[in-house]
Write a protein that binds this DNA or RNA. Structure first.
Length: 284
DNA sequence: CGAATTTGACCCCA
DNA sequence: TGGGGTCAAATTCG
């Protein structure tokens, strides 16, 4: 659709048509994500690491999650908590930091997964016999998200950044009145876009002419997402697409993490290694 | 130069 | 036997 949109920019009707198609496909994707989250076995709602910015429960294929086909468990290995969560990396929100210091001790390519799984243990494992570990893996279907599995409880008292848990409001459904927010002036927005927007296609796999498979959006510092977006595509001769679509930021996404970007984080190095995904940023 | 990460080897078990 | 988790030497980082 993006490709079609590209060749139809001259025609306002066709342009609007394809924009609507793109937006509706996003809505469908978001809806599917929500269905996926609510389906499946009930996972423990209690979250031991409350400072994580997000909390949709998704299975890792860990034993006990009961939803993944590939489920192998070593006999003597510790039991992974059922609670496995997806969370995005929100650069403005301070990244993947969950309040503990982790030290990476391994990385493995996992069969059937596009991205490797990273293994972390508590930095104070030796100093304080803290045997908490976690696994971090990028999702195949939404590379802007991570799935994190925690194992063991922290016995150390060196929790790194005692960042308070995020306010729930931040991740709630956007009230409709936000749709009434007046958009920024076109000139201002344009200059901001030129200054800040970036699209990295340098490491795209395969056909770089195909439409991007994923976008990431940073959230605003205020945590509010306005429904006014200006998207600049890299090969559109800098022609600016103004998309005003309340439905685009559908309330379906209580996971505002859909709109995220890679940020500085514990896993940034890992991310940089596998930075083959289309990256798209936008101001709000 | 110590700490953290990378990465291939190793181990265990289904 | 091979996948996944861990180890540890080599390398990089700060």
């Amino acid at each position: 659709m993006a490709e079609l949109l590209k060749v139809s920019l001259h025609s306002p009707e066709a342009r609007d048509f394809y924009i609507q198609k793109i937006l509706s496909s996003y809505e469908n994707a978001l809806f599917a994500l929500q269905l996926g989250d609510s389906a499946g076995p009930p996972l423990t709602p209690a979250l031991p690491a409350p400072s994580l910015p997000e909390s949709s429960s998704i299975s890792f294929g860990r034993p006990g999650s009961g939803e993944n086909v590939i489920s192998k468990k070593r006999k003597g290995s510790p039991t992974w908590e059922d609670e496995v969560r997806t969370f995005n990396d929100n650069g403005l929100d301070g990244n993947n930091d969950d309040g503990y210091n982790w030290r990476k001790y391994g990385q493995k390519d996992i069969q059937g997964a596009k991205f490797p799984r990273s293994y972390y243990r508590c930095s104070y494992r030796n100093a304080q016999n803290c045997f908490a570990t976690k696994q971090v893996q990028r999702r195949d279907d939404d590379p802007t998200k991570f799935e994190i599995a925690y194992n063991g409880k922290h016995t150390c008292n060196h929790s790194a950044s005692p960042s308070p848990p995020p306010s729930p409001e931040k991740y709630e459904i956007m009230p409709t009145h936000h749709q009434k927010l007046s958009p920024p002036s076109p000139r201002e927005t344009l200059s901001n876009l030129r200054a800040n927007l970036s699209v990295n296609t340098s490491n795209l796999d395969g056909d770089s002419n195909t439409a991007p498979s994923s976008f990431s959006f940073p959230s605003t510092s205020s945590g509010l997402m306005e429904d006014y977006h200006q998207l600049q595509f890299p090969n559109f001769d800098n022609e600016l697409l103004q998309v005003y679509s309340p439905s685009f930021i559908s309330p379906v996404t209580s996971e505002s993490n859909i709109f995220s970007e890679w940020g500085s984080s514990q896993s940034l190095n890992f991310l940089a290694d596998v930075d083959t995904d289309f990256e798209f940023s936008s101001l709000f």
